[in-house]
Each structure stands twice: as C-alpha cells, then as structure tokens.
Design a protein around this nucleic acid. Structure first.
Lengths: 231, 231
DNA sequence: GTACATAATATTGTATACAATATAAGTGAA
DNA sequence: TTCACTTATATTGTATACAATATTATGTAC
C-alpha cells in the first residue's frame, strides 16, 4: 500500500469520534448540549452505528453522558466532581513528571517545546479555545514521555474533562500565564530535577483550580451551529 | 412499575458486558483467547450489536484488545505493560487510602470487612479465581469510599488488568496472605491513620508484584468451554 | 387558561442485512 | 513436499429496518 493511500484512507469511526471530540474540546459544543444521533449522521455522513460507537467511546472517556432512552449530552461536571477531577490530575501528573524527569530525551524536549510554541501562537492570535486544547496536548505528551500507558489513558479523559471545567467555571485570564508555567515545567523536566518539576506542576495545577469559582452555571450551544463549517 | 419487575428487568447490554467481564476475571477466559462475535451471540442470546458494544467497552477498560478486521481478544499485558500497570495502581491507591482515611464511616468499615470475609471464604473453599475477583472488589470499594470518581474509574480497569497479570505471571501462593494484608489495611483506614494505611497498601501491592516473575507465557482457553454452564 | 388524558411524532434501542476484509482450503507447478 | 496463487469460507465492518421508549402536540373537561 502506498503512503499516500495510507494518508488518504480515512478511518470512519475514528473520524466521527475525533470530530465530536474536537467539537467539544474546542468549545463549539458547550457542556450540557444534546447530541442528537440523526443530526450527527447527516453532519458526518455516516450511519447511526458509527455515531453511537463514537458517543459510547466519549462516554467512557467521561466527555459525554448517555442517559438510557434519553440520549447523549456533552458532559457538565458538577463543582464537586470538578474538584475530584482536579485532585486526580494532581496525583497522577505529579507521578508523571517524576517519571518524565527520568526518561525525557532531547527529542522529547524539542517536541514539548514545539507544543508550547504552538499553544503560545494560539494565545497570540486570541484563539483561547485552541490554546486550551494545545495546553491539554502538552500535558498528555508529558505522560507519553513518562512511558506509563495507564497514566496516559487516565489523563486523556481527565484533561478533556478539565477543558470542560474551564469552559464552565473559569473566569478568564486564569490560564494566560500557562506559557511561562509550561516552560518552567519543561525546563525542570529537561534538567531531570524531580523536586523542581513536581513543584512546578503542583503550582500550575493549583493555578487552574484557583481560576475557577464553581458557583455559576454553564450555557448551552446547538449542534448545527457548532459544525456549520461542514455543510 | 413493580419492584419485582425492576429486579427481573435485565439490561441486555450490561448483561453481555458483565458475563464477559466475569468470564475473564474468573479466569475461565485466559489472556489471548479470541472472542468470536457470533459464538458470543448464541451463548448470550443477543445480537452482534450488543456483543460489539460490550467488547468495545471492555476494550476501553483495557481488558480486551480489538484489532481492526481481526477481532477481539482477551488482553494479555506484556511484562513491561504489567509493571506500568502495577506502578499506576501504586500511585493511585496510595492517594485512595489517604482519602479513605478521612472519609471512611462505620458503615463503610462494616461493608469492607464483609468483603474481606467473602474473599476469605472463597480462599477456604480453594476457589482462588473467586478470591481474586473479590480481592479486586475490595480494592475498588476502597476507592468508592474515598469518594473520588476518577480514581474509581481508573482503578476499575487497573484492577481488572491486575487480575490478568496475576493469571499470566503469578506463581501461586503469592497472594494467599492477602487476607491479613486487607485486614491490616482496613484497620489502619478505619483508625484514620494515613501513614500506617499508606504503608500497608504499599506493602500489599509490593507483594503482588513480588509474586510475579514475568518470564513465562500464558495458556489460552476456548469460548464454549468457558461458558458451558449457559447452554 | 390550566390540567389532564390521549394521540402523533421523534428519538433511542436492538436486530438483521449487506459489504469489506481476513482466514482457510484447494489447485497446480517446480 | 512446498510454494505460490486462486477460490471458498468465515469473520468483522457498516448501514438499514424494525421495536421500544420518550417527547411533543392536540383535544377536552373544568
């Protein structure tokens, strides 16, 4: 099989999943939004079978809630759950940076630095949704570098949920300092300084939590608007 | 709706999932076993739709591996992955007992003690497969008591995978001392002694790892034999 | 107009049918 | 035999059809 064919070949179920995932993470689909199956079939051009597959997967990643006979909705973590999520991230990511300090190669550092730059360029363009998504990708890459598959798996869901939390509860600007924090974190990891890296990570995650107030409720969005670019 | 109807009403997709899950966790389905979809439909009396739903869910819990166009197989973690899993459990369960120490009620202690007793009775009857499953349920209940949903979610998969690891790599007797360890752990949690509880948990998980050698390969099993009690 | 019951519609749940791919069986030549 | 190649079979991937449930609309009594 040619490389071009490999690149062209689109994996239908993954595509539907990715589109939905991106739609949610980029904040085009607000927490609580109902995800109607037939609407999604026409938007993505696949049958309900694949839509339901994607929705189930998103549910198991805790990004979507499915209520029996009622349908799927973009998850809207309660304040209590939100704090549980941030605590879980704290625990896992501290362990992750510890491992990353031991295993990070120069190639890894380059890639992580590149991701920081991409995040910053999104911030410079005022595209905070993209910046938020890229920030999550940086954290996930750190877990990949750490070389622990279960941590990667758990963090994938937790990071996505954190994006939802920030969408719902953060009163802006709270994560504008993210760039510096990511850079400081990477510097510590790159130097293999576990003590410093853990401190940076704890500080960074603390900032995210501090930027939320957990008293206001979220606004919804509608499906067609979120995927208007497709039709 | 009557209570009896509620109890009778079986949730078909959950049933298929549970049967498979139990089959794997109780070691009737050995790691690596192929899970043929049509065979499962006749065994469970539901259509491939629900079988595939169950398999996908098990895949996302890392208990089953699905290879595109090749089918589903009971997961068989490599020695390297096995160690990553045990490390992840170590990290998360230490945090769990910490929380459990703060939140454990007398009712929780009773329930946990009951689960220890059930595990012990399985050991007394020589049913190590059931004992192993009950041991996992004890650990999961501890996470529920701790009140952190993401930890529960992550541990559900990790504990299941640990069962597979023990099936594949443990040279017996290694977890015979589990009862005492669980009891000591519960005592510490019940007393709210975080220091002691963490130490017990670390010791307990260390024992599991120490009981494995990671050099031998697993044996397979066939489907019809594993579910012979159904037909 | 409100409240309730009933019918019409829409949406999800499950099973089946068809398509695509992989596996196994057969066939012939070296 | 063994290898390659072709054909047949089995298995998975996807779409559709039908069933069950929920939501909305309609009508009627008060």
């Amino acid at each position: 099989m040619l490389m071009s064919e490999l690149l062209m070949k689109h994996d239908a179920p993954m595509d539907a999943y990715r589109q939905l995932f991106d739609g949610i993470l980029s904040q085009r689909l607000a927490p609580g939004t109902k995800l109607n199956e037939v609407e999604l079939t026409v938007l993505f051009g696949v049958s309900r079978t694949l839509i339901r597959q994607a929705l189930q997967r998103l549910q198991l990643e805790q990004v979507v809630e499915i209520h029996k006979n009622r349908g799927a909705f973009v998850a809207a973590p309660s304040p209590d759950l939100a704090q549980q999520i941030l605590l879980a991230r704290h625990t896992i990511e501290l362990a992750v940076v510890n491992l990353a300090c031991e295993r990070c190669t120069v190639g890894d550092v380059e890639q992580l630095q590149h991701m920081i730059d991409l995040e910053q360029s999104a911030i410079d363009q005022g595209d905070m949704a993209t910046a938020l998504r890229r920030s999550g990708e940086f954290h996930l890459q750190l877990a990949i570098v750490a070389g622990n598959q279960p941590f990667v798996h758990a963090l994938r869901g937790l990071i996505s949920q954190t994006s939802l939390i920030i969408t719902m509860y953060s009163h802006g600007g709270g994560n504008a300092c993210a760039r510096d924090e990511h850079s400081l974190l990477l510097a510590a990891v790159s130097a293999g300084d576990q003590q410093q890296a853990q401190q940076q990570m704890a500080h960074h995650l603390g900032h995210i939590a501090a930027g939320c107030d957990f008293t206001q409720s979220p606004q919804m969005a509608n499906l067609k608007g979120a995927f208007a670019h497709l039709s």
